[in-house]
Design a protein around this nucleic acid. Structure first.
Lengths: 211, 211
DNA sequence: CTAACGTTTGTCCATTCGGTCAAAAATAAA
DNA sequence: TTTATTTTTGACCGAATGGACAAACGTTAG
């Protein structure tokens, strides 16, 4: 979006832009793009609307900026999936990292979910570009592991979807999860319970152990 | 919301209300509550805005009506989980039914997802009521199966979450799924692939088969 | 036909929202 | 200090939006 010159930014500009993005992330992830008003963001950021618009040309400008940063963070765990590591350990670690992201960056997860659910109107290119490329690379890795008999044969695309779905669920559907678990089991411990469960699910499934 | 008298409805009223709800479901599931305008719904329903407002008092009225119907449909598959059936078959069937719902009612799934992601502002009572009760009932069933050694021991709450997450993913994140799978694998067959994968995942997991 | 009731529409309104602008205030450079 | 530059704000604007309303239109029962 930045045209021409590389725009050197003041210290104040850098700081305030950060403050604004933080507030925008709060609002966008909670109310969605259309559901968020510039005034809301401005108030959350502790400044007036015209002031905010001095740092970001438009609402969409903020959203785009957030989205660009987001995908990077978001795909990091998958990037780390290492071809040369022990396959089972690598899968286990990937699931754990992804679950940690759901725990530590729920706003980012919801922002992403909001965008995808509504047809990814603003980030389709990134989905079809970076994300798709990375997934292709990692499914190839998994296929290798399957060929070597290190993990069971299964569709690697759907495996990745399943990992995404199960982990992000704890961020995106947080209120439902907490509500269903109730006050006693819905505390912070729910992530550890989830981690234990998911490890078992992905490694052993649910068939009874044969004796 | 209906006060006092049980309001007998004309044939026309019944039909038009249905048409409107259909259009509203389309719009709400695509653009979210705030992102949808009454004009959009009216146009999709083929009538004028004031005409639409003759059948539904307000935008929220439509949304609430949709939500109430939604949860019923949504929980039906879990309702069918039968204590007296064969546990493995029951789980398999539940997963399949849930996946079929994602395939056949993606708009409903997205509507629900939108609502939950944004903190369930309009359906919290239903989550804490019907949904929670049903989940408690069915987790008890599962615990019974585990006690009898019919399925492996695992946290039944998180098991239900995992089934919800993995199946609904194919509706809610549809554009991402299709985009990643590409034109050749992203066609209608993706649901069959998903069904196969999920069955394997939930029953056997991914550890290599011991020889 | 006519009265009663159900349906539809054009017009209007208050509010909200994204965004502009010029001018004031603060800050940094000279 | 003076000057230049950056930051902040109050006032404003046009478009969009949710909704009200009365009048017109259609339908049907008596």
């Amino acid at each position: 979006m930045d045209a021409g010159e590389p725009r050197k930014r003041t210290r104040i500009q850098i700081e305030k832009r950060e403050t604004i993005l933080e507030a925008a992330l709060d609002m966008f992830s909670q109310h969605g793009y259309r559901g968020t008003t510039i005034d809301q963001i401005a108030e959350a950021a502790g400044m007036s609307k015209p002031n905010l618009l001095y740092y970001f040309r438009s609402k969409e400008d903020m959203h785009v900026t957030l989205m660009q940063r987001l995908l990077e963070t978001w795909l990091a765990p998958l990037h780390e999936l290492d071809n040369s590591g022990d396959p089972i350990d690598e899968l286990r670690s990937y699931i754990r990292r992804k679950l940690e992201m759901a725990r530590d960056f729920p706003r980012e997860s919801r922002l992403f979910a909001n965008e995808i659910i509504q047809g990814a109107p603003r980030i389709m290119p990134m989905i079809e570009g970076e994300l798709k490329t990375l997934v292709e690379e990692k499914t190839a890795v998994m296929r290798g592991w399957m060929r070597e008999g290190k993990i069971a044969k299964a569709d690697p695309y759907h495996l990745i979807f399943a990992i995404w779905a199960t982990t992000q669920h704890y961020a995106d559907f947080d209120v439902q999860v907490r509500s269903v678990l109730g006050p006693d089991r819905g505390g912070e411990g729910r992530f550890e319970d989830a981690a234990r469960f998911l490890e078992q699910l992905f490694l052993d499934g649910l068939k009874p152990i044969k004796v």
